[in-house]
Design a protein around this nucleic acid. Structure first.
Length: 486
RNA sequence: GGCCCCAUAGUCUAGCGGUCUAGGACGUUGGCCUCUCACGCCGAAAUCCCGGGUUCAAGUCCCGGUGGGGUCACCA
């Protein structure tokens, strides 16, 4: 990798704290980390919290915990500090505004006063005229800059857009694919600064990567089509662009980009069903990457030792749950019986867990030995619905409406920030209300779906203990099961 | 739809012009081991998307097609 040594390697992973810690984030973090380690460089964690609408307070900690759990460690980040901070983009707004001013001054950007409604109209018009791709018509670019500034200073809401050349083409070198060339006509005048004063990804990302001296941008393939905007930004600022490395996207079984609709994507889910962190890490390591020889089971240090971009393959790897389980089996078998015992205790057979479960089964067991059989579904992954096939219905509700409805409910659960019994109940009751379905029917289904039993302790408390990720997975499986029933 | 990326068994991959009658792994499957089950071991079925070139020689290089994916937000 001689060509990677021109400047000190500094790479970053830049998750957005908008939800659960995503396996894709772990995947990209892993490759950034391995590369940095291999090159004796630095790995940085930066929090891209510029979307105030989607921001979730609990998400950042969940992400850092999950990444640590996976075994990747950053040299600089919001929690560990560093010389290039702050590492939260929300704390850097003044910086972005300052650089945005420069772009405005050099004529590489302009203020746009169009309302969301106007933008929607323009998009409609493009669609009607079959203009591909639909783009902003740049009408505000015609406004005199001084005039625009006056209007903005007077308090009129506006955004700042970057100027994209009318024609020509933007080229860049992707480390894994070689030269990629995209026509300027395909690129919209991207919004750089939102009306709330926060930057969009494109601006913040480029400014931060420059200021943090990022040498290689290792990110997912979905960013390829917006890379020209970034390349242009580097040009406008007169900065040296980093090397681009676009990793393939993790996929669902049908090859589409991995999504929570078709796969559990939260790292928490895998932790909760008892996947060992190193096993998940190893599994992610063989996604689009080969260790060499015929080895698939290898440690992180071993991966780092032989790490090379040449070993990355570009076909999108399907995230195969079966193979993950097999990988996990390898790691479990490598444990000594004592270590396995410790892992079990740390995982779920601990006091904290017992304290959560005890009140639920307290009055339902006659001997302590009844515990295991009465709580088995609190320690398992998927459950079996086949024994309840006859019960998986609601009077007057067509099968199709039923499983689709279930999926809608799961989406409602997805939106929950926590997963306390009260919230789950509120959402569930609201759902019944909306559908006009009787709670007793819906809750019966939820009980079977989340526990694999027709009897259990109070449903919502039980669901809360089982946990959000596993409940969502099980209910999606239930919907799938119902869909396939004849 | 425009543009871009990709293309070896159902899945993850090795292969970087001849050693490929394509190797490994998951899954599937047959058997062995064995008090059961699992592990382990041995074996099997299953792949180079199609068509043109280039070359003495192509899974490997080039072009076209097809297929899949991504992206077209005041989300990242």
């Amino acid at each position: 990798m001689a060509d990677d040594t021109q400047r000190p390697v500094r790479v970053r992973v830049a998750p957005s704290p908008t939800g659960d810690p995503h396996v894709g984030t772990g995947y990209i973090a892993l490759f950034n980390y391995a590369f940095a380690q291999k090159m004796g460089g630095k790995f940085i964690l930066r929090i891209e919290d510029t979307d105030q609408n989607r921001y979730r307070a609990d998400s950042e900690a969940a992400i850092t915990d999950a990444l640590n759990w996976l075994g990747v460690q950053w040299d600089e980040g919001p929690d560990v500090g560093g010389d290039y901070g702050p590492y939260h983009q929300s704390k850097r707004t003044a910086i972005y505004q300052e650089y945005c001013e420069k772009l405005l001054a050099s004529g590489h950007a302009y203020r746009c006063f169009c309302t969301p409604e106007t933008l929607a109209e323009i998009r409609e018009e493009c669609k009607a005229k079959k203009i591909n791709p639909p783009m902003y018509d740049r009408r505000c670019k015609a406004i005199d800059a001084a005039e625009a500034k006056k209007r903005a200073d007077a308090g009129e809401t506006c955004v700042v857009r970057m100027v994209i050349p009318r024609d020509g083409t933007i080229k860049f070198e992707d480390r894994l694919r070689g030269e990629v060339e995209i026509s300027a006509s395909q690129i919209d005048d991207q919004v750089l600064l939102k009306s709330d004063g926060f930057p969009t990804y494109h601006l913040a990302n480029v400014v931060d990567d420059y200021l943090m001296e990022i040498s290689h941008v290792v990110r997912a393939e979905e960013w390829i089509s917006s890379t020209p905007k970034h390349v242009l930004l580097y040009q406008y600022f007169g900065w040296q662009a980093p090397e681009w490395v676009h990793m393939p996207l993790l996929r669902n079984n049908n090859k589409s980009k991995i999504s929570k609709r078709k796969n559990p994507v939260s790292i928490h889910y895998y932790r909760d069903i008892g996947i060992l962190p190193d096993a998940l890490r190893n599994f992610l390591s063989i996604m689009g990457y080969s260790f060499g020889g015929d080895r698939e089971v290898f440690s992180l240090p071993e991966m780092i030792e032989g790490f090379s971009w040449e070993r990355v393959s570009l076909g999108g790897p399907v995230f195969d749950q079966d193979k993950l389980r097999w990988m996990n089996e390898q790691y479990i078998h490598a444990l000594s019986p004592e270590e396995l015992a410790d892992a079990l205790i740390e995982w779920r057979y601990n006091r904290e867990r017992m304290v959560q479960i005890a009140p639920l089964i307290h009055k339902r067991i006659k001997t302590l030995s009844d515990f295991a059989s009465s709580t088995e579904y609190m320690f398992s992954g998927d459950v079996d619905y086949a024994p309840f096939a006859e019960k998986l219905k609601i009077p007057e509700v067509p099968k199709k409406d039923l499983w689709k409805g279930l999926l809608e409910l799961v989406d409602e659960y997805d939106k929950l920030i926590g997963f306390e019994a009260e919230e789950v109940e509120a959402v569930s009751r609201a759902f019944c209300e909306k559908k006009g379905w009787k709670p007793k029917h819906v809750f019966g289904l939820l009980r079977i779906g989340s526990t694999g039993r027709k009897a259990s302790p109070p449903l919502f408390e039980t669901m809360a203990v089982i946990g959000k990720d596993i409940c969502r997975r099980r209910l999606r499986e239930l919907a799938e099961f119902i869909k396939k029933m004849k």
